[in-house]
Nucleic acid binder design. Structure first.
Length: 755
DNA sequence: GCGCAGCCCATTTTT
DNA sequence: TGGGCTGCGC
């Protein structure tokens, strides 16, 4: 792997403009918005006609190219703002695009009706044609939590074993099918038979029936119903095909099959679709994202032009070199060569530590050292593979008095109190929202328990009416008695009362009124839960947030598709987050702990997805390294506490893949190799290894970069954490030891001593 | 209907 | 190791 760093001669941007096939290139050539763009970015802006794949490596000025492209389309009047479709995955990305485009084109950005997330745009389209899939346009959007509840109910109703088929699992299965664009009739029969005691398709059917009864759609449905409508109503499809003269898709490597089909249908008429992405940063395969979409773009969209953005404006040569060397080990990629004009000389620092505690301590030392040189804490981030790794860092930060923030984590709109409050308001808007009704009818406790609710559910199902209506009937005919009767009666009349005021009050006023009147606020005020004060605070924030919307329905619609209230990322704080949460961010100093086999790459990923899983983990590592601007610190520990148990660990295979010329090790040694292939479950590695050992006779399989250990098989040795044991096998500098009390472990030889 | 003890399990989480 | 869920006893 040669260094991806070069002194590219910079061709004049004029060259790119001439190369561009656009007719208006001439007039645009002097456009002020093109100033400062590199030739490839210019090309990406000016190549407006036909399918374009903008392969934008990390830190190559993608957003700039993409917003300028939109500005160019508007400025040259190729299309009106409402004829341009611009899709992103996150609200944050949509917001950013809107802001930056606004800076270029001013008020015109307000006319960009079709700029937003896949889900919000598909949701808007679905509201207009809801009746074509038997929904009312007022349908509610269910989130992940609602889906699971619904599945749980269905599991019970279908008399399935709840242990064997947890609602969460089946909800995930259905989600997966929807991600692949499959309606119940389209799911492969054999595949579906693997679930719900062979009744997978039936279960999916039932689930969809329930959604229709509730007049609801889940996230997956927003896209899937669009597909159904487009495929069976050519006239409707044509409206949108004609409208979207230009299409722009961000983070294309993260699209799933449903989104891909949706884009294909919509772009079929004008064919001016520009997708932007980086196959090397596809890290959401487990959520249905298909790297294949971006890899196949040229075949899928004939005549497609590929434009590579390869000049990196973010990182140092060593950071880019390390990342490029690592990702080169992936087979399935389009390939690109990042380069930078930076001359910085610091290398990536690789550190071998004893355990997670030492790792956290050393990271803190580095942070403090940087701080004392005048760096802000907000210049630094610790990126971990799993949330469980955060604890040791939080402990250490607290001990050292380092201010930090955890990015990601439980989202505002997914919190219990938020969801309860929203359930009240959903019910006020729509009495037939059964999920909302069931959620809060007894919260706070009113004495309407399981039994009463069950009675309502049975009645509702028999008469095909909503829970709310069933409740009034059961009250009227005296089936519900005593305490439950009074409580339920009061609750229903309160609901009527609130509904009467909806039109006279603002969303904020309604929210405050409902939460106070219902006793929900008091419920938390009197709660002994230590988190209660925080929850009350959140409720306040929620009520305030409603103030930005004209009406209750407008607010609820917004909330359904947004997970964050507002990101209040603090200044002067170290950021701690998962690698997934770090995508799209950058920091001068990045710490990447826990590079150990099993942890990163995650064993589970390997077991479940084999080579594909390994490649996705590698992309995750690539994302991690490329977040760094100046310094990147990678570390691995010999021992890690997992599930309350000490585990010996060996360095991640990714460490071997870092080109040595870009890496410094703290000990000044060549990075140690794990000396063997990453283990897949199917390879039954332990048996394999011992067989090999016996055939070899000598247990000294020497690996390329590891020095030979000077221990011998059978020798009695001591390990600080596991105690005494005897060496079973030697593999480079890794020893398989049978400990007297801790069982078989594989450990690094430098942590082993002779007794 | 409520609270608690024991049990099971354990990645990543844009909408 | 510890959080979330279930089943049991009051």
């Amino acid at each position: 792997m040669s260094a991806p760093v070069s002194d590219n001669p910079l061709p004049l941007s004029q060259q790119a403009i001439q190369a561009s096939s656009t007719t208006s290139a001439q007039e645009a050539a002097n456009a002020p918005y093109l100033e400062g763009l590199n030739p490839q970015q210019c090309e990406a802006v000016l190549t407006t006609e036909g399918p374009v794949l903008m392969l934008a490596g990390a830190g190559t000025g993608k957003t700039r190219a993409l917003t300028t492209r939109l500005a160019h389309i508007l400025a040259t009047r190729k299309a009106a703002p409402w004829q341009v479709l611009a899709v992103t995955f996150t609200n944050k990305a949509a917001r950013e695009m809107k802001e930056r485009l606004g800076a270029l084109v001013g008020d015109k950005v307000e006319g960009m009706r079709w700029m937003g997330t896949f889900h919000s745009i598909a949701g808007q389209i679905l509201r207009r044609h809801a009746e074509l899939v038997d929904l009312k346009s007022s349908f509610t959007i269910l989130d992940a939590d609602d889906q699971v509840r619904l599945c749980k109910d269905l599991v019970k109703a279908s008399k399935l074993d709840e242990k064997r088929w947890p609602g969460r699992l089946l909800a995930g299965v259905i989600d997966g099918w929807k991600n692949r664009g499959l309606t119940p009739d389209q799911v492969p029969v054999k595949e579906a038979a693997l679930f719900a005691e062979g009744r997978g398709i039936d279960f999916y059917h039932q689930y969809q029936i329930r959604l229709r009864e509730l007049n609801a759609a889940d996230f997956g449905d927003l896209l899937l119903h669009n597909l159904t409508i487009f495929q069976s109503h050519q006239d409707v499809l044509k409206i949108y095909q004609d409208r979207f003269a230009y299409m722009l898709v961000d983070e294309y490597q993260d699209t799933n099959v449903a989104q891909y089909l949706w884009l294909r249908l919509l772009s079929a008429s004008h064919k001016n679709i520009c997708v932007v992405g980086d196959d090397d940063q596809s890290i959401y395969g487990w959520r249905g994202a298909e790297v294949g979409n971006i890899l196949r773009f040229e075949q899928d969209f004939p005549g497609a032009k590929i434009i590579r953005l390869e000049q990196n404006y973010r990182s140092t040569p060593a950071i880019l070199g390390a990342a490029s060397g690592l990702i080169a080990a992936n087979k399935n990629r389009l390939g690109k060569t990042l380069w930078t004009a930076s001359k910085a000389e610091d290398k990536v620092l690789l550190r071998h530590v004893w355990d997670g505690e030492e790792e956290a301590r050393l990271v803190c030392d580095d942070i403090e050292a940087a701080q004392s040189k005048g760096r802000s804490l907000s210049d630094m981030a610790v990126l971990v593979r799993t949330a469980a790794q955060m604890r040791s860092f939080e402990d250490r930060f607290n001990l050292a008095g380092i201010a930090y923030q955890v990015i990601g984590g439980p989202r505002f709109y997914e919190r219990e109190e938020t969801r309860d409050a929203l359930a009240y308001l959903r019910l006020v808007r729509n009495l037939d929202d059964d999920l909302a009704f069931a959620r809060i009818v007894n919260k706070p406790r009113r004495g309407v328990g399981e039994k009463a609710l069950q009675m309502m559910a049975i009645t509702a199902r028999e008469l095909k009416i909503s829970l709310h209506m069933a409740a009034s009937q059961l009250l009227a005919n005296g089936a519900i008695k005593g305490k439950a009767k009074n409580a339920l009666g009061l609750f229903l009349s309160q609901l009527d009362q609130w509904r009467g005021q909806v039109n006279d009050l603002s969303a904020t006023e309604i929210a405050a009124l409902v939460l106070d009147d219902s006793g929900y606020t008091d419920y938390w005020k009197t709660s002994k839960n230590p988190q209660a004060p925080g929850k009350l605070e959140n409720l306040k924030e929620l009520v305030q947030a409603a103030g930005e919307f004209d009406s209750l329905p407008a607010w609820l619609d917004h909330v359904a598709l947004v997970s964050e209230l507002n990101e209040n990322t603090g200044d002067g704080l170290v950021s701690l987050m998962t690698l997934h949460a770090a995508k799209g961010l950058e920091f001068p100093f990045v710490f990447l702990p826990g590079w150990e086999e099993g942890l990163f790459p995650s064993q589970r990923s390997l077991d479940e997805n084999g080579l594909k899983g390994l490649e996705e983990e590698r992309r995750l590592a690539y994302v991690g390294i490329t977040r760094a601007r100046e310094r990147c610190f990678i570390s691995f520990a010999s021992n890690r506490l997992t599930y309350g148990r000490w585990q010996a660990s060996i360095p991640s295979c990714f460490i071997d893949e870092l080109p040595p010329e870009f890496v410094d090790t703290d000990s000044g040694q060549t990075p140690v190799s794990n000396g063997q292939k990453t283990r897949f479950k199917s390879e039954a590695f332990s048996q394999d290894d011992s067989a090999l050992h016996q055939i070899d006779g000598k247990a000294e399989r020497i690996t390329t970069s590891a020095k030979k250990s000077d221990f011998t098989v059978g020798e009695r040795v001591f390990h600080q954490k596991f105690g005494m044991g005897s060496i079973q096998k030697i593999d480079g500098n890794k020893l398989d030891i049978s400990f007297d009390h801790a069982g078989e472990k594989r450990v690094m030889d430098n942590f082993i001593t002779r007794p």
